[in-house]
């Protein structure tokens, strides 16, 4: 099996309907499931979320990414999945996290919302590296804080 490390960055639109607590419930559920699956599959990554969109980075062996992505694709909680990057990489950016959550705090949300605004409806206009750097930046900030 191909052991090359790959990084996937994608955006999708959130289709969860309901109030904030329902949203939080679903997010917790997504994180719990992905952390469980990812630790088994040697997949690491980060998830970012606001009321409109998901942004996720997944890194790991090719076939594991593929498997994980297929599971994500069949999830009814989102739609309009747009792959921003899928490339071989030398090292993991999120080696410590089975699925880091770059939550919903006001600062992140504003940044992420800006991201959405810049790209409008057309996600494809966004750069995969940009999303990756954004997610990493947030995590580093959180660590030093």
């Amino acid at each position: 099996m191909d052991s090359t490390l790959y990084r996937l960055v994608y955006l999708s639109r959130n289709t969860i309907v309901g109030d904030d607590s329902r949203l939080q419930e679903e997010i917790d559920d997504i994180l719990k499931a992905s952390r469980r699956n990812n630790s088994r599959a040697q997949v690491t990554g980060a998830l970012m979320f606001n009321s409109g969109c998901f942004a996720q980075v997944l890194e790991g062996p090719h076939d594991k990414i593929q498997e994980t992505f297929e599971r994500i694709q069949c999830d009814a909680r989102h739609t309009h999945v747009s792959v921003l990057a899928f490339d071989p990489v030398h090292e993991r950016g999120f080696s410590e996290w089975n699925m880091a959550y770059v939550g919903q705090d006001a600062h992140n949300l504003a940044l992420f919302a800006g991201l959405n605004e810049a790209s409008g409806v057309d996600f494809a206009a966004l750069d995969g590296d940009e999303v990756y750097r954004l997610l990493r930046g947030h995590l580093e900030e959180a660590e030093t804080a």
Binding site: T4, Y6, H62, Q73, V81, V83, F86, P88
Partner: peptide, 14 residues
């Protein structure tokens, strides 16, 4: 139609 419109990841390609 919706599901199959979504991208696939195969052999390092989208």
């Amino acid at each position: 139609v919706e599901l199959l419109q979504r991208p696939f990841l195969i052999d390092g390609h989208q």
